[in-house]
């Protein structure tokens, strides 16, 4: 009987080969897809919390996310078969003029880890590109990242563009080191999170 606890541990330490092998074994022994998924999501939650508490750092977080991605790739077809769909469709990117992406990548990974279907638009993304992606994908959630004070106005432009395009049902969450809750209120974003772990909580609470 493959051990879901071990699967979680493999993800936490970023051991993608073991994570993949255990996921395969779990699928073969017909463990319900939902249980496998829960084990993965639970593991990523803990990874996020450890990062939040400075117990682990960017490299540890990135390899855990990579192991999660590998395992998730194997599980996805099974989830589809079982009729388990992602909790939400999310679009994420770093705003126009800004090339910082490490924090955004971590948020994207935590969202994937929470079983969101995440479309990552990369860095230096124009407001129009966000609007187009939200529309084509019917996204319920958008994440905007900015690390420079000089690119914070691009958050406002993007929020305005999304709301202005009549996509009001889409919830917008913003973040990045210089961004604050007050700024989120000011520009009319629906949520703000200071780090990748709370980005999941905020997104869940909005949906």
């Amino acid at each position: 009987m493959p051990d879901l606890h071990e699967l979680g541990e493999a993800i936490k330490r970023g051991d993608r080969d073991t994570a993949a092998a255990l996921t395969k074994a779990a699928i073969e022994t017909k463990i319900p897809a939902q249980e496998i998924l829960d084990a993965m999501v639970g593991a990523m939650d803990i990874v996020g919390q450890r990062f939040q508490k400075n117990e682990i750092f960017v490299p540890e977080m990135l390899i855990a996310a990579r192991a999660m991605k590998e395992a998730m790739g194997l599980l996805e077809p099974i989830l589809v078969e079982a009729g388990i769909t992602p909790v939400a469709k999310a679009v994420i990117g770093t705003v126009e003029g800004d090339l910082h992406d490490i924090g955004k990548n971590l948020v994207a990974m935590m969202w994937k880890g929470a079983n969101f279907d995440v479309i990552d638009l990369g860095t230096n993304v124009s407001p129009q590109k966000f609007v187009d992606a939200v529309r084509t994908n019917n996204a319920q959630l958008v994440g905007l990242s900015a690390l420079l004070t000089t690119t914070m106005p691009a958050i406002k432009k993007t929020v305005d563009a999304i709301k202005g395009a009549g996509l009001d049902v889409t919830k917008i969450v913003i973040g990045g080191a210089p961004v604050t809750q007050e700024y989120a209120n000011e520009v009319g974003a629906d949520g703000y999170a200071p780090d990748a772990a709370s980005a999941v909580d905020v997104a869940r609470s909005l949906l």
Binding site: G14, P59, L62, I63, R66, D101, I102
Partner: peptide, 10 residues
């Protein structure tokens, strides 16, 4: 590439 270097450590 900073993202790649972070994985190289492992």
């Amino acid at each position: 590439g900073i993202n790649t270097l972070m994985l190289d450590f492992f």
